[in-house]
Nucleic acid binder design. Structure first.
Lengths: 343, 343
DNA sequence: ACCGCAATCCAAAGCGCTTTGGATAGATGT
DNA sequence: ACATCTATCCAAAGCGCTTTGGATTGCGGT
């Protein structure tokens, strides 16, 4: 069923039918009602490609997934972020498109999306330090939003981020207040911006307390369960093991917990643990009492906000850039306690 | 940069340029080379909407995400399945589109995708028993593939599934061989087809061993960590607690393990555990020795295969339906052992 | 010298929609 | 009664591409 067929059926011109359905004023209300009824009855839906061609808008927002199998992107938070975003897109009539690109051609992929006219805007996820993609998109002067930020990129751009530094600063202070002095940090990949900021917060807290950071207690890699387990096991075997551990991900925290158990220690008593909790739907941090003391910030909500900000940007491409900094909440659970008295 | 601009620049007609770029034979190879060089130089990319309008194909494959916040879809396996699929799509020139729909309008969403001409095919994820969406898509006679199957749907349709029944049959037999008699099943939502099949396998093994199933030991719900923990705690508190537990998800298995620990028991000695492992990239089941004995089947690979099958279907809409049944592998880890001798 | 054919290229139509620039008719004002 | 609005509708162009149906040229065959 096309516009033409529908208009023939109604004895009207395509112009009038189009206007009737799109809410333009220059059509009699009686006619409009008749058109709407006929459209509904025959399940008419404008062809989105044709509409896009005519209007110059695609009503699609793009996300680029790097194809590297172990990349941060295909990670536990992916689903929740997308769920938050796609819901918001739908409310504004946008669809969401994913494209694949291998690591060497990610910029190509963004460029392609826009040049082909496939999307009206994109979301840039998982920014690294000095993220090159930002300047690429900026130069293309296309609507985009960054989930996260990028240290070292001076251009103005829209972003939404969690205050990673302050949340890890606060978490570290919390551990220091409990008397911990040997605090480990199991962080995400070093070149990820969020990881750097979390480390900054951690280091700032240590510095305030006059504690010299120990390279031995700072690890960074892809945040899997196995990684959390491995690093913890290694560190607990040190001559002078940490009494507390900060972890950048709940998934890794599960591995940390496993390693603590295997060492015959008790989490919260022998070793304190604080994790960053993205508040994933399938991985709630306990029911009543949180399993882990955690810095919590919903990534699903971040997805919603990012989507809204991007849609705003698409509507007004020349508005001043906007940013949004979410504060993570420190929830105290059973995984932290006073530093054990070993001395 | 449009086709017209490019052709003007080259002193050729749009026809010839189009043919040169799309590999048609009626163009001089020298001309073709010249066109390709110019296209590359100016970064020309055909507008996908215009191309789609002209060809009648969108080169997009759709996925519909129900907006119910706690739905199986936004779950840990989502990211990996998508990663597998999107890679395959890209290799064949397809993009992937997500649309949101609330639970009452999922069928509407599928219908809309096709009527708007937004997609060439869709993937149906998370089928329930008697899945209505299958007959809807079937009647629309559009290309689609089901990830999973649906008991009670007689129509022929393309699907790819894990042999859930045989894998849980085998896992249960494995536990029976170890001497376990009180085996619990912590399953996914009851109306999900995979959950039903897994239960069938479990029940079949019990029946073969002459053991009557106990409703008390069979649980089903959304497969979160907290759920695994809660059900395990409840069951371990029974007068006659299970000595082994089968779990439909690694995420829930983590909660199971937590509950076992909290009860002061040791997994693999006091309570044996077998989980279904989707082989998620960020949640590998241990490094050398698997943490959990598990029925393993890569959901990422399933995504790849599903994508390939769907693309085949799009190419030949009238070919006989194809199905693919993957066998899960039983990997033996540390979470299982002989039944404790309590008698 | 003439015909047929292959190779190469192009003009124009068409995909389904929006939108510009009228056309028409009835209502209003003087 | 005439000019001027206003309300309502439409024809046609245009979005950027593909594809049909030629047109043109040069060549071999007879």
């Amino acid at each position: 069923m096309t516009l033409k067929e529908l208009s023939d059926m109604l004895g009207l011109s395509p112009t009038t039918v189009s206007r009737a359905l799109n809410g333009y004023p220059e059509v009699n209300e009686i006619t409009r009602a008749r058109v709407q009824a006929a459209a509904a009855k025959h399940g008419y839906r404008p062809n989105s490609r044709a509409k896009g061609l005519a209007t110059g808008k695609s009503m699609v927002i793009g996300h680029v997934i790097p194809s590297s199998s172990q990349h941060e992107m295909v990670n536990p938070i992916f689903g929740d972020f997308v769920a938050g975003a796609v819901k918001t897109y739908a409310e504004h009539g946008y669809d969401m498109m994913f494209t694949n690109a291998d690591d060497t051609s990610i910029e190509e992929a963004y460029r392609s999306l826009f040049q082909r006219g496939a999307v009206d805007g994109v979301v840039l996820q998982g920014p690294k330090v000095n993220e090159h993609r930002i300047s690429v998109l900026s130069k293309m002067s296309v609507p985009f939003i960054v989930h996260g930020r990028s240290t070292g990129v001076d251009l103005p751009y829209d972003w939404i981020d969690v205050n990673n530094k302050s949340s890890f600063l606060r978490a570290t202070q919390f551990l220091l207040d409990l008397g911990h002095r040997r605090i480990a940090l199991i962080n995400g990949l070093e070149d990820m911006d969020f990881a750097q900021r979390r480390r900054d917060g951690y280091l700032a807290a240590l510095a305030q307390a006059g504690i010299a950071p120990e390279p031995n207690l700072m690890r960074s890699a892809e945040m899997t369960e196995v990684y959390g387990h491995h690093e913890t096991r290694t560190m607990l075997a040190l001559d002078d093991p940490p009494t507390a551990i900060l972890i950048s991900s709940m998934i890794s925290a599960i591995g940390v917990r496993r390693a603590i158990d295997e060492a015959g220690l008790q989490m919260g008593r022998d070793v304190s643990v604080i994790a960053h909790d993205d508040d994933l739907s399938y991985l709630k941090n306990g029911q009543d009492v949180p399993i882990f003391t955690a810095t919590r910030s919903s990534v699903r909500k971040a997805g919603e906000i990012a989507a809204n900000m991007l849609i705003e940007r698409i509507k007004s491409p020349d508005a001043p850039t906007k940013t949004r900094l979410l504060e993570a909440e420190l929830v105290v659970g059973r995984s932290t306690g006073p530093a054990p008295n070993r001395y």
